[in-house]
């Protein structure tokens, strides 16, 4: 095969991806950027300015929302990691054969229904007249109905629940690749459970931990339904704010600026996370 044919094959193979990248990622973002530096001065008249970005910094409500969203997302990521790690360890290292695949499948099960349905499921359980509140009353543990919805703890729980799978999968795959004999060697040489976890298991699974954390953080930061529905009147989520600007306020300019601010904040946090953990994006993506 001559080189021009090889090139043609390469172009044909890459074209769906390039089309996708160009049409659905790059062009919309360029468009969004120009939208974000446009200021409406009168109906149907616009000027180029940074007013939309200035608006974000002068109105405490907006940056409070972004700060809160970022903080809650980081917290959700850390908690998801803490909960998912033992689960992944159990699946990858303690189980064999059929039980292993069944348990893995169980982690997948909630994702057979859409996020909306899952969230409504939580609402049915947690609302004041919901299953949990009524059961507790029936058992005589509480006197009156309790509202479990519409607070930050519930939002956090919903976010963790939604994110679990995306943390468990990369963790299971990196833990699977950890040779059992390394753990046994650790014991054999006098290591305790804690020191083996710290010196062998965690360093080995670092790429999985980082890629899981990146995915969960991005998903949580970009989540819309869970914080809005479970948070109710107390929900302040930045994507909700973007949605509001675009859909109910018709303020696409400010919405676009918010999109870019969210992109910058999320990229910065991921970059910081990689720096602090001493990983690179390439090593993380390649290994898990």
């Amino acid at each position: 095969m001559n080189s021009s044919q090889t090139r043609l094959t390469l172009i044909l193979l890459l074209s769906p991806f390039l089309l996708w990248l160009g049409l659905l990622v790059i062009i919309p973002h360029i468009d969004m950027f120009f939208l974000s530096i446009r200021e409406k001065v009168a109906p149907r008249t616009y000027e180029t300015s940074l007013a939309n970005y200035a608006e974000f910094f002068t109105e405490p409500f907006y940056w409070n929302t972004l700060a809160r969203t970022a903080f809650m997302s980081i917290l959700a990521t850390v908690l998801t990691l803490i909960i998912a790690f033992p689960v992944a360890y159990y699946i990858a290292k303690m189980l064999r054969g059929k039980t292993k695949s069944i348990l893995f499948l169980l982690c997948l099960l909630p994702f057979w229904v859409s996020e909306l349905v899952r969230t409504f499921g939580w609402m049915i359980l947690l609302r004041e007249t919901g299953v949990i509140s009524s059961s507790l009353q029936w058992l005589g543990l509480i006197d009156g109905p309790i509202e479990f919805l519409y607070n930050d703890v519930t939002v956090m729980m919903g976010l963790i629940y939604t994110s679990m799978l995306f943390m468990v999968v990369p963790l299971v795959s990196t833990l699977d690749s950890l040779d059992d004999s390394l753990i046994e060697a650790g014991y054999d040489l006098g290591g305790s459970k804690l020191s083996i976890l710290k010196e062998i298991v965690i360093p080995h699974s670092m790429p999985g931990i980082i890629s899981g954390c990146i995915v969960v953080f991005m998903l949580t930061l970009g989540n819309y339904l869970t914080p809005i529905l479970l948070g109710g009147k107390s929900s302040m989520w930045f994507t909700g704010q973007i949605y509001t600007q675009f859909i109910t306020r018709f303020n696409w300019e400010l919405g676009a600026a918010f999109c870019f601010l969210l992109l910058i904040v999320s990229s910065t946090i991921v970059w910081l996370g990689l720096k602090l953990s001493g990983q690179t994006l390439a090593s993380t993506v390649a290994k898990s």
């Binding site: 969004m32 949605y243 859909i247």
Partner: peptide, 13 residues
């Protein structure tokens, strides 16, 4: 980000 995606797909569709 969801809102962007929604809009983009909306626009494309």
């Amino acid at each position: 980000m969801k809102a962007i995606k929604k809009l983009t797909t909306g626009a494309v569709s």
